[in-house]
């Protein structure tokens, strides 16, 4: 069930990238998509248990798998920086194309 929700999020984001016309909306859809991917990593990490993997007095509790969490942390940072970079690019483009319609910008800038 949870898995289905995660894939629905990814799909929503993907369709948003295709169907939305505004460039900012496209970037937000991409964010939705990456949120879905991150959620999927967390979901897989929690397969083995829900406890935070920190050494404690308690013994034999079901820990969550730390590896996917560590990996996705890297991916989150990278995704975030890429988004920041894209938004800067969009700001620059907004000077000459105030509506930010992707198709219009494409029309103007393709040889």
């Amino acid at each position: 069930m949870l898995e289905a929700c995660v894939f629905a999020t990814v799909l929503c984001g993907f369709l948003g990238i295709i169907l939305k016309h505004n460039l900012v909306m496209k970037i937000i859809s991409m964010d939705v998509m990456s949120t879905g991917v991150i959620a999927y990593y967390i979901l897989i990490a929690s397969r083995s248990g829900l406890f935070t993997p920190i050494v404690d007095n308690k013994e034999n509790v079901a820990y969550a798998d730390p590896v996917p969490q560590a990996v996705i942390l890297t991916a989150i940072v990278i995704g975030f920086s890429i988004q920041a970079l894209m938004l800067v690019g969009v700001m620059k483009l907004a000077k000459n194309n105030p509506t930010l319609e992707a198709s219009a910008i494409e029309e103007n800038n393709t040889p």
């Binding site: 993907f14 991409m30 990456s34 991917v37 970079l85 894209m86 620059k92 483009l93 194309n97 800038n109």
Partner: peptide, 23 residues
Amino acid sequence: DRSIWVGLRYLFVSNVAMLFYLI
């Protein structure tokens, strides 16, 4: 403007592909 758009397009395409790759 043109170079920014071309770069943005490249970044978009590659980032979406990399999201699939991550899954």
